[in-house]
Each structure stands twice: as structure tokens, then as C-alpha cells.
Design a protein around this nucleic acid. Structure first.
Length: 675
RNA sequence: GCCAAAGUAGCUCAGCUGGUUAGAGCACGCGCUUCAUAAGCGUGGGGUCGUCGGUUCAAGUCCGACCUUUGGCACCA
């Protein structure tokens, strides 16, 4: 029998699960439950992603071992997932024996295939701590957007990636020292030998969503694939590379292998073999991931698997991000609501599952959570329509049970059986929103039926007791049918329905035949309405340290905290930098650039400099002309796409619209040096 | 600027390979109902389907150009 192996991306052990993470785990869980309820053999595997510098730094700060940190986080993650009914068959850890062994095996395979090369890498080195600084050990100003206090690999603000060596004003987070540039040997995995294979593999219809396949083709496959740096020098929290002492596998090397390690552990518990899941052509491997990690999963991961002769993913299902009220989740706005916070507020996890289901399609679109919409949708659909059907019928049947024969319902039950085809199809192709729409239409038909039959009128006439039983039996069966279809999304409602009717729900086929002649338990509410205030209370903006009142000087230290002082320098260091007063004689936007103004600066006596400055968002060119500014006059010229930049205008602020060009007081003359 | 995606009722969206007067939910107006967790049912208003042009007997649906939005990339020495 064919098997399906499903994974969600591994959550990083550096933080707690929030509502944004849950989109993926709930999406995956719904799909896996659907597969299982369809009688397919499926397992859902995941693990904590535990390695890397961030974990090491955090453990150091907290004064404990990495193992203690990741152990605690794993417990918290699993508790949160369980709270949302995300039912992994196994949840492992990348810091496991199974993973270490598999990493070794894949590594050997890459070595044997001649795909590992060694090369010198220039990296930042901390002279005080005596170690090379991995990206997460160094902070500085983003070389792209100018945001201070960013790590060495990418900028949180503008999302660009760069090398740590490019950081402006880099500072070691270990010692506070200014790092120097040194070189070390690194190990790389070559990808270019698999270029043609990857082109074919990623462009196979059904493998990736079309927009993802296009993205990969356009961004990576159009030119030679670059080698992938997979080693990091000590100190590093991870696995030491067996044949390269002092070198560790980069966290992104061992993380996806964690999918296999988790499978391995599951197999050991269930007397199965890893090969039957990862080498058997009858197994479909399906990865659910967020759009941010597309390239690891579509280029690196398949090329690793192929080298070692394992199954390649059959499908990589990419989802977008969660926004709240149309904006990115953010700590400062309080919209980064934790999974735990949601549960502790007494909100119903099923309701979030349902809401996500109504929003999720096969597309890579961001989904928006609007708190008003959340409660309106849940209350109207689940409570007002679906659960209401049970409220409207079950009480009439507590004494009599369901009718011995299924009454004539005008074809409603039959029609809903037929709708099952479309519902199954929609689940299968990840279009949960469509499945939910079809199911809710069934609930509408059922409510109309109740209205038409008016059982409350029949009830008044003792002679028509049988009619009351029949009508209620129809309604309760229609309700159960809907619940069966919703079981992948709402497992708890399914359980409660099993108890109410004394009949198990083990398969979507349980929707195909009505129950007859069976007892109905005493009815109690199956779902609470969502109180929008409870959710609102979770969205608590962090108090902003920046004062809004323009009259009050905001000398609150926020800027200093964001960008700590650079290491001490000597007067000689300072005098190397030749700062001069200059007058802006011309300023114009660079039309092809988003952030640049072209400035012509006069140093007096006819000496002018052409400077490109990233201040377009903050200044209109006209208001700059005639102004005095301070420039770095002896900076090495830099060739840019738009021309030669011969200096730098001195300015403060984090970037974007918050840029403040320094100006000398009146009386200063162009060409004067700043001492 | 380049690449990608998207622009359909106030809001969130559905409209498959082109085919009757463009749909749903929420919200709003009116009416009915009371079995049900102020739930339910009926009914009404509301859209030049981003703009312009083209293909076609027929276009929200195909083609082209443009506009707007959102990502990503380049650019901030």
C-alpha cells in the first residue's frame, strides 16, 4: 500500500510558538488527518531545530547548557502543539543520536560523490575571545538599509542578506570588541553538478506551486548554482564533522535531516524500517514549509537526498505568512500572540483551526487575521450554523433515540454524500477554504430544513410525536455528516459528537450512511461562542520607548541601546577620517534607485564631489540645495551602478525616513575641516 | 528598474479549460419565527469585475500596454 510521509518545518528551539507558526502546523495537521480519515497510511513527523549560534548565545546568557535550554523548549513546543490538537506521530530533535548518524551518512555520500570542496573563507574574528564569529555572534549596522543592531547574516528590517564582513561598525556580541577580518578553511557542497537535475526536478508539474517553481527558475537556476558553505568553525553548538575536526555542520545542513531522524525514531518505536519510508518508491514525501525557507527545501535538500540515494520530496507545499489586520506580526504592536497566551486566555483552539482552514488555499498567499472577522466567522459558522443543528434536534431525541428507519428528507442526506466528493478533492489539493465553503452550504440547507418542518409546532400535538422524532433524526444525521467532514479541522467536535450519538467517527465514509435506531445522549453545549474581547486582550502593544510628545526631549537611551558604543579608538584613528564642511550645490533623485539621491558637494574653490546618499525617503532634493553638510572627504571612491560616489554625507538615525543630516552652525565655510 | 504575485459589492473572498440577467459569507434595511448558545428563515439595496485597446458570435475569464498594491533583488562609501 502506498504511504505518505508528511512533515512541517522544524520550529527553532530559540523561541516559543506563536499564532504565525501555527498556520503551518494546523495546515499540515488538517491535511494529515484528512489522509488518515481517508484510509491512507500517513505519518506526520516533526522535530525541534536545536543547533546554531543563536541557541549557544542564549544558553550562555542564561547560564546553562544548550541541552537544558533545548530540552525545556521542546517540552514547551510539544505542549503548545498538543493544545492546538496538532498530532505528530513523532516529535524529535535535531540534537539526537539518530540525526548525528544520518548526518554522517549523507555527508559520506556527498564526499564519495566528490561534492565536498574546501575553500578559504574570510570571516570576522574576535581578537579578545580568540574565536571566529559566526553570523549570529556579530552585530552591526545593516549595509543595505542602515538599520543598526543587526546580525551578520541578514537584516530583520529590510530582509536583505549579506556577509558579516559587509556589516557597518561590526561589534562582537561576545566581548564587545571590534572584530577583524581573518580567513579560515570552510567546507562547501557543490550544487552545480546537479543543475540540470534540479531544473528538471523543480519544474516537474505538481512538485511545487507554479509561482514557487518560477521563482526558483528565475532566481537560482538561471545562472550557475553557487557552492553551499556547510561548515562552521568552533565554538558552535551542533555536530562536529567526523572527518574535519574543529568544524561543525551548519545548522541548515542538519535541520532537514532531522525529518529523517524523526522518522527513524518513530520507526524504532513501531518496529518499522527507515528504508521503507525514505527509500521505498511507494512512499510520497510531502513537506509543508513557509515561503521564507523555500530555497533550502527546493535546492539544497533534494541535492543532499539524491547524493545519498533517498527518496526525494514528492511535493513541497509552501504557505504565506500570517498578518494581523493587514500588517506583519510584530512584538511592538503586540500582534505576535503566543500559542500559550491564546490557550491560557481560555480561547478555543478549534476555532483558530477553523478560521485558518477558511483562509488557506493552495496558493502562497499571506493570510490575514482580523480579530473581528475571526470571532464573527467562528460564531456565525460553527456556533450559529453547525452546532446549532445539534441544539435544535438532540433534545427532542434524548428519550426516543433516532428513528428506526431513516425518514424521507427530500434528498438532503444524499446530496451531502455527493458533496463529499468535492470536499475530499478540496482537502486533497490543499484548498481548505473551498472545503469549508461547501460544508457550510450543507449546514445552510439543514437549517432551512428545520425551518420548513417547524418541529416546535409538531411538538405541541402529542399525536405527531413520531414526526418530531423523524424530523429531529434527519437534522441530527445531517449534523453528524457535517461533523464528519469537519473532523480533520475540528477533532474535538468530532469526539463530542461520537459521545452524543454513541457512534465512532473513524473515516470520512462515516458520512455516507445515516445512523438509525440508536440512542442519543443528554445534550450539552458542544462549543462556546468566541468572546472577541478575550482575543483583543491578547494583543498588547509593548510600551514604546520613544516618546511621541514633540515638546519633551526624548533622551531615553533607546538609540544608544540599539547601537552600542564602538570600541575605543585613538586620536590618530580619528584623524584618519577627514571630515569637511561642504555645500550642497545640486541634488537630484536617482530615478532608477529607490533610496538614493545624487548630491554635488562643493568644498569651495571650485572643488566639487559627486556623492550618492541613501536619504531619498527622508529629504526632498530642493530643500538640500544650498545647505551646509559634513562629509567624509577622504573616503575611497566607490563605483556604483549609477556612477562614482566620491565621499559620504554624515547623518544620524536608523535609516529610511529617519535620517538626520548633520549641519554646521551658521558661519562655517565649505572646505573647513571638522576636528 | 528587474522578477513574482495580486487588483471582482463597505469588508473577507469564490468564480474550473471563455457561454444564460456576476456569486457567497459578514455588515446594512425590511419582514417572519422562537426548537436553538440574542441562534434560524425569507427578502431588499449595493459591483462600468484596476484602466485602455485587441481576439471572438460571445471575456471577470484569452492576448497586449498601462496604472496601483504587496513581496523579493539591485542601489544607502
Amino acid at each position: 500500500m502506498s504511504k505518505i510521509l508528511v512533515t512541517s518545518a522544524l520550529p527553532y528551539a530559540n523561541g516559543h510558538i506563536h499564532l504565525g507558526h501555527l498556520v503551518e502546523y494546523i495546515q499540515t495537521d488538517i491535511w494529515v488527518r484528512f489522509q488518515k480519515l481517508s484510509g491512507r497510511r500517513a505519518i506526520y513527523l516533526c522535530a525541534d531545530d536545536t543547533h546554531g549560534t543563536a541557541i549557544m548565545i542564549r544558553a550562555r546568557k542564561e547560564g546553562r547548557t544548550e541541552e537544558a535550554l533545548i530540552g525545556e523548549m521542546s517540552q514547551a513546543h510539544q505542549r503548545d502543539f498538543a493544545g492546538f490538537d496538532v498530532a505528530f506521530d513523532h516529535f524529535g530533535s535535531t540534537h539526537s543520536d539518530a540525526n548525528r548518524k544520518l548526518c554522517g551518512e549523507l555527508w559520506q555520500a556527498l564526499r564519495s560523490a566528490g561534492r565536498v570542496v574546501e575553500r578559504e573563507v574570510t570571516q570576522l574574528f574576535d581578537p579578545q575571545a580568540g574565536v571566529f564569529l559566526a553570523d549570529r555572534f556579530v552585530k552591526g549596522t545593516c549595509p543595505r538599509c542602515g538599520t543598526p543592531d543587526q546580525y551578520g547574516d541578514s537584516c530583520e528590517k529590510c530582509g536583505s542578506t549579506y556577509s558579516a564582513v559587509e556589516l557597518v561598525n561590526p561589534v562582537s556580541t561576545l566581548s564587545g570588541a571590534r572584530p577583524e577580518v581573518r580567513s579560515a578553511q570552510h567546507l562547501f557542497v557543490t550544487l552545480e553538478p546537479l543543475h540540470d537535475f534540479l531544473t528538471g526536478w523543480t519544474q516537474t508539474p505538481g512538485r511545487l506551486q507554479p509561482e514557487i517553481a518560477n521563482y526558483i527558475a528565475g532566481h537560482f537556476l538561471a545562472e550557475p548554482l553557487r557552492d553551499w558553505d556547510v561548515s562552521r568553525p568552533a565554538p558552535y553548538f551542533g555536530f562536529e564533522i567526523p572527518d574535519a575536526p574543529g568544524q561543525y555542520w551548519y545548522v541548515w545542513f542538519d535541520a532537514p535531516i532531522g525529518y529523517m531522524a524523526s522518522t527513524q525514531e518513530w520507526c524504532e518505536k513501531h518496529g518499522e524500517k527507515l528504508e521503507d519510508w525514505w527509500k521505498d518508491p511507494d512512499t510520497r514525501v510531502v513537506h509543508f514549509i513557509g515561503k521564507d525557507i523555500t530555497y533550502f527545501h527546493t535546492l539544497f535538500w533534494p541535492s543532499m537526498l539524491r547524493a545519498a540515494g533517498y527518496n526525494l520530496p514528492d511535493r513541497i507545499q509552501v504557505h504565506g505568512f500570517l498578518n494581523m489586520r493587514g500588517e506583519k506580526l510584530s512584538k511592538s504592536k503586540g500582534t505576535l500572540v503566543s500559542a500559550r497566551g491564546y490557550l491560557d486566555a481560555g480561547l478555543d483552539p478549534q476555532q483558530l483551526r477553523y478560521f485558518y482552514a477558511t483562509k488557506l488555499s493552495a496558493r502562497v498567499e499571506d493570510i490575514d487575521l482580523n480579530p473581528e472577522e475571526l470571532s464573527a466567522k467562528v460564531n456565525s459558522d460553527l456556533v450559529g450554523k453547525v452546532v446549532n443543528l445539534a441544539s435544535r434536534s438532540a433534545r427532542f431525541l434524548e428519550k426516543t433515540g433516532l428513528s428506526a428507519e431513516y425518514p424521507d428528507d427530500g434528498g438532503l442526506f444524499r446530496a451531502a454524500v455527493e458533496a463529499g466528493t468535492e470536499i475530499r478533492d478540496a482537502y486533497e489539493v490543499f484548498d481548505f477554504a473551498r472545503a469549508m465553503r461547501v460544508i457550510m452550504a450543507l449546514a445552510d440547507r439543514a437549517n432551512e430544513y428545520v425551518d420548513r418542518m417547524e418541529p416546535w409546532k409538531l411538538k405541541k400535538d402529542p399525536a405527531r410525536a413520531k414526526d418530531v422524532q423523524d424530523v429531529s433524526s434527519v437534522v441530527l444525521n445531517l449534523f453528524r455528516q457535517i461533523v464528519v467532514y469537519l473532523t480533520p479541522v475540528l477533532p474535538r467536535l468530532a469526539e463530542a459528537t461520537e459521545k452524543l450519538l454513541g457512534a465512532p467517527i473513524k473515516s470520512l465514509d462515516d458520512a455516507n450512511a445515516p445512523l438509525t435506531g440508536t440512542p442519543v445522549a443528554a445534550f450539552s453545549h458542544l462549543m462556546e461562542r468566541m468572546d472577541p474581547k478575550k482575543f483583543e486582550a491578547l494583543v498588547v502593544p509593548e510600551p514604546t520607548p520613544v516618546a511621541d510628545a514633540p515638546t519633551e526631549p526624548a533622551d531615553d537611551g533607546a538609540a544608544l541601546a540599539a547601537e552600542p558604543l564602538a570600541p575605543e579608538c585613538t586620536i590618530d584613528d580619528f584623524t584618519k577620517v577627514d571630515l569637511r564642511v561642504a555645500r550642497v550645490v545640486a541634488a537630484e533623485p536617482v530615478p532608477e534607485a529607490k533610496k538614493l539621491l545624487r548630491l554635488t558637494l562643493s568644498l569651495g574653490g571650485g572643488v566639487t564631489r559627486n556623492v550618492f546618499a541613501g536619504i531619498k525617503a527622508a529629504y526632498d532634493p530642493e530643500q538640500l540645495v544650498g545647505r551646509l553638510v559634513v562629509m567624509v572627504a577622504n573616503l575611497a571612491p566607490r563605483q556604483m551602478r549609477f556612477g562614482l560616489s566620491e565621499g559620504m554625507v554624515v547623518a544620524a538615525g536608523p535609516g529610511d525616513k529617519e535620517v538626520f543630516v548633520l549641519a554646521p552652525d551658521a558661519g562655517a565655510k565649505p572646505g573647513q575641516r571638522v576636528h
